[in-house]
Amino acid sequence: MSVRRTRRTRLTAALVAAPLALTLVACGGDDDTDADTRSDDAPASGTASPADETPQDDQAGSTSQPAGDTDGLLAAATTALGEVSGATVFSVDAEPTGWEVTLVAADGTESEVAVAADGTVARGPVTDPDDSGADEADDLAERRQLLKDATVDHAAAVAAAQSSNPGAVVTGVDLDLDAGRPTWDVQLGEDTPDELTVTVDATTGEVIGSERDD
């Protein structure tokens, strides 16, 4: 059973980051006043010169994943690790408002920390309130096996994936067992035409495969 699937179906709902809100306030009077206001605001709207188009470009970019870059991913993992003593990063995934980091403690307990795009902790750590039953016992055993066998951490896996794909942006990383073998799945350029998953051996740090996502 995949640790990632369990995390997605049982933990993610506990970490709902607050959405961004944009409020546009417009004021005006009669037709002449409205015309004067539009004229006065023209430089700020990006119509005066190419240089003034930058604010519009920035605003358009804010609708994408703000934390979707390699440095942001690594920083979010470091921030989350500071919330759970002795934990190991098992996954980092880009979200619209930041990052979702899954940590596993030395005893195999799993928790999640939401890190905002500005690098602060938005929520967490949160553990699964339903950690019981046969399925959870299997997941716990798998996590403990990964803690024992995986000697390559998330940062080394990211570096390995980038070395084989220079210039690619890492948007996610996930530790899992692949036919009993600990591996890192490193997502490059997620949700873009160049999306690629690179598989890194979690015991040697070597790239052992890659898959272009359709």
Score class of each variant (00 low, 15 high):
residue 42 A to C: 06
residue 129 P to Q: 08
residue 62 S to P: 02
residue 49 S to Y: 10
residue 120 T to Y: 12
residue 2 S to H: 01
residue 14 A to V: 03
residue 167 G to Y: 11
residue 4 R to K: 09
residue 178 D to P: 04
residue 167 G to W: 10
residue 159 A to R: 13
residue 134 A to M: 07
residue 211 E to Y: 09
residue 151 T to R: 07
residue 64 S to C: 07
residue 165 N to D: 08
residue 56 Q to C: 08
residue 200 V to M: 10
residue 133 G to Q: 09
residue 119 G to V: 11
residue 203 T to Q: 01
residue 106 A to N: 11
residue 152 V to S: 00
residue 44 A to W: 12
residue 51 A to T: 06
residue 121 V to A: 00
residue 14 A to W: 07
residue 70 T to H: 01
residue 139 D to A: 04
residue 192 T to C: 02
residue 65 Q to H: 07
residue 109 T to L: 06
residue 193 P to R: 02
residue 30 D to P: 11
residue 189 G to Y: 03
residue 99 W to D: 06
residue 147 L to F: 06
residue 73 L to G: 07
residue 25 V to C: 00
residue 41 D to Q: 12
residue 141 A to G: 04
residue 109 T to P: 11
residue 109 T to D: 04
residue 126 V to A: 01
residue 85 S to K: 08
residue 204 T to P: 09
residue 181 R to Q: 15
residue 197 T to E: 09
residue 179 A to Q: 13
residue 10 R to F: 03
residue 152 V to R: 03
residue 166 P to Y: 08
residue 108 G to S: 03
residue 109 T to C: 01
residue 204 T to K: 06
residue 135 D to Y: 01
residue 131 D to I: 05
residue 188 L to K: 05
residue 133 G to W: 01
residue 104 V to C: 00
residue 158 V to D: 13
residue 149 D to N: 05
residue 127 T to W: 04
residue 14 A to K: 04
residue 209 G to M: 13
residue 184 W to R: 14
residue 58 D to W: 00
residue 77 A to M: 08
residue 152 V to Q: 00
residue 41 D to M: 14
residue 69 D to Q: 03
residue 197 T to G: 04
residue 80 A to E: 12
residue 156 A to H: 11
residue 20 L to T: 13
residue 184 W to N: 08
residue 38 R to C: 03
residue 182 P to T: 09
residue 6 T to K: 14
residue 202 A to L: 03
residue 206 E to C: 03
residue 79 T to R: 15
residue 185 D to N: 14
residue 154 H to Q: 13
residue 55 P to S: 15
residue 3 V to I: 11
residue 131 D to F: 02
residue 179 A to W: 07
residue 61 G to V: 07
residue 53 E to T: 15
residue 172 G to V: 07
residue 27 C to I: 09
residue 118 D to A: 02
residue 213 D to C: 01
residue 125 P to N: 02
residue 56 Q to I: 13
residue 19 P to C: 09
residue 95 E to N: 06
residue 103 L to C: 08
residue 168 A to V: 07
residue 34 D to L: 15
residue 20 L to N: 11
residue 134 A to V: 13
residue 164 S to P: 07
residue 180 G to W: 01
residue 35 A to P: 10
residue 14 A to Q: 09
residue 155 A to L: 07
residue 102 T to E: 12
residue 23 T to C: 00
residue 35 A to R: 15
residue 31 D to M: 11
residue 16 V to N: 08
residue 128 D to R: 08
residue 16 V to I: 12
residue 94 A to N: 12
residue 81 L to K: 15
residue 172 G to S: 10
residue 67 A to W: 02
residue 37 T to E: 15
residue 41 D to R: 14
residue 203 T to R: 00
residue 124 G to W: 03
residue 93 D to R: 11
residue 153 D to R: 08
residue 160 A to Y: 05
residue 173 V to K: 04
residue 43 P to M: 14
residue 57 D to A: 12
residue 189 G to L: 03
residue 59 Q to L: 15
residue 55 P to R: 14
residue 108 G to E: 09
residue 171 T to I: 02
residue 98 G to F: 07
residue 211 E to P: 09
residue 46 G to M: 04
residue 152 V to N: 01
residue 144 R to T: 13
residue 128 D to C: 10
residue 6 T to E: 15
residue 193 P to W: 02
residue 89 V to I: 09
residue 2 S to N: 06
residue 165 N to H: 08
residue 64 S to W: 06
residue 96 P to M: 06
residue 84 V to R: 06
residue 134 A to C: 02
residue 52 D to E: 12
residue 51 A to L: 13
